[in-house]
Design a protein around this nucleic acid. Structure first.
Lengths: 288, 288
DNA sequence: GAGCGAGTGAAACAGACGTTCCGTTATCTT
DNA sequence: AAGATAACGGAACGTCTGTTTCACTCGCTC
């Protein structure tokens, strides 16, 4: 029982057979693992509303020699993955521009990526994701438009949606035919727009075409002031790290894959179980 | 001096004026903050090679009432951002397949992204990044090849390298002309290959052409068993999260942007200061 | 309802801990 | 070179901590 995972599981599973006071401690331990790691027995006992001796009984009930030995497990939990992550976040907060050797630059973007992912989780509206899934699930054909720096995201959408067996059409503007490609959109289709500052004109153009033709459109962008904000619904605002105009697409790509997988699950469910599952597996083998 | 950031900065800045033993402790404290948070005075003293009393002198030198008070700062550091992040990582380790509502799926990929970034930092060889930069810096034209799921990475490379003012050529195989496009490669060019399981045949084909023609080639792939491992140098092995065959490109894209920025910095340096800087800024404004 | 056993609370104990103190050593000044 | 000052090592001290012990209570069984 040296890992916290094991201990946590043991506490959970043996909870019912514990005595009342021991349950009280189990409750407190799982809810305040930080206290368990740092505080003295007396402090924890007081906060949990038990006697210090009961804490030792608790530890012994889980085969530790005493409380101190159990406390080591709670401390190890804080040491395992944490320090490097928190450490690096701290660095980036202080030093904004990446400098030095290539691996220092890599370390910088890794940290910036962590940051972006954290924010992504906090800022995305669950209800908007739900709406986006429904929008895409009911579309006959899905058009995707994104230029320049956003283009890799579009390429990813096109590839992944194709894998779900959906009709996905990448409006790449090849041969200057973007608007002609977009002109084929119908009201039972859907459009995915991705655009970041300074917002390529071509993308806005197609967004307006979609609005005029009544084609439902969702958007991924970087600011509520973005011109495509009024042209899409739902709109996802993503804040990726940016350095010297080079935007890391970490958060954006994560949002993209999440949408695709959520959509895939929704389609599986609506088709119902086994058959759909087989279809997914069949699709899977065509990967590159 | 209640935040770890302040303490760290104070230790760094006052380091020169400290006595020899106190410097010894300063060194140890910054390198082993975990020990400082958890271990007893005697343990830390032994590991740092000083007497316990010296540790108290150290703490008092930074205006703490004693060692214990200073230790609280090191402990607080571990509590601040940690639990949620480590907690989520733990969940993902247990539950591999994402299920549930769209935002739960998003949360899953966010955590997987954190994971992938952590590993990226540990696994990438700094020396290989250095070599890759030199390779790309000295190339006349940079060719990029990647198919299907890897294609978004190639698109990103092509866009970003173009922004550095380099000749970047995306071998997209349009119209089945991939090999003809590749045939233009010369020995003073360079090739970037990106390929993940199951390794598109077209990419391997072009990799062989490059080898036969003596064109230096770097590779990003997902396994040492990948067929392009022997065809490239340096080779970067990246382990992105994968769910139901949908590969999150988080780590790969982070590596890509890092390479590009490191390369950009190298070019700036070799061109020398102001002029190159202005060029970068000029390029910046053309972004989309 | 009496006897039994596990569970619990509170105080006592032994050991460890952080801290202080003082003799010694090193470093810089005059 | 000698003194003065700061730094240091190591032992001693008093406190605090984890643990143990034991008396007591509660809940069950016969």
């Amino acid at each position: 029982m040296q890992s916290y995972d094991d201990l946590e599981q043991a506490i959970s599973s043996r909870y019912p057979e514990l005595s009342r006071r021991l349950q009280q401690i189990a409750h407190y331990a799982l809810e305040h693992p930080n206290d368990m790691a740092f505080e003295k027995v007396a402090t924890i006992a007081e906060r949990a509303g038990v006697q210090p001796s009961t804490l030792i009984r608790f530890a012994k009930a889980f085969a530790y020699s005493g409380f101190s030995e159990m406390q080591q497990v709670f401390r190890a939990r804080l040491m395992e993955t944490t320090p490097s992550y928190a450490e690096r976040l701290r660095r980036v907060r202080q030093q904004q521009s990446p400098e030095g050797s290539p691996d220092q630059i890599l370390a910088h973007f890794i940290t910036a990526g962590h940051h972006a992912l954290d924010h992504l989780g906090q800022e995305i509206d669950p209800e908007a994701m739900q709406r986006a899934c429904e929008l895409l699930a009911s579309a006959e054909t899905i058009y995707i438009v994104a230029q320049r720096r956003s283009f890799p995201v579009a390429a990813y959408f096109a590839y992944a949606l194709g894998h779900l067996g959906l009709h996905a059409h990448l409006v790449d503007g090849m041969g200057g035919m973007a608007e002609q490609q977009a002109a084929a959109m119908r009201t039972d289709d859907a459009l995915i727009m991705v655009s970041f500052h300074p917002y390529a004109e071509e993308t806005q153009q197609i967004a307006r075409v979609a609005r005029d033709r009544g084609v439902p459109a969702m958007a991924i962008t970087d600011s509520p002031l973005s011109p495509i904000c009024q042209l899409g619904d739902p709109v996802f605002e993503v804040h990726d790290g940016e350095v010297q105009s080079f935007r890391s697409l970490t958060a954006t790509m994560t949002l993209a894959i999440s949408l695709v997988v959520a959509l895939g699950q929704r389609l599986d469910l609506s088709l119902g179980g086994a058959g759909a599952c087989a279809q997914t597996r069949e699709t899977r083998d065509r990967n590159a």
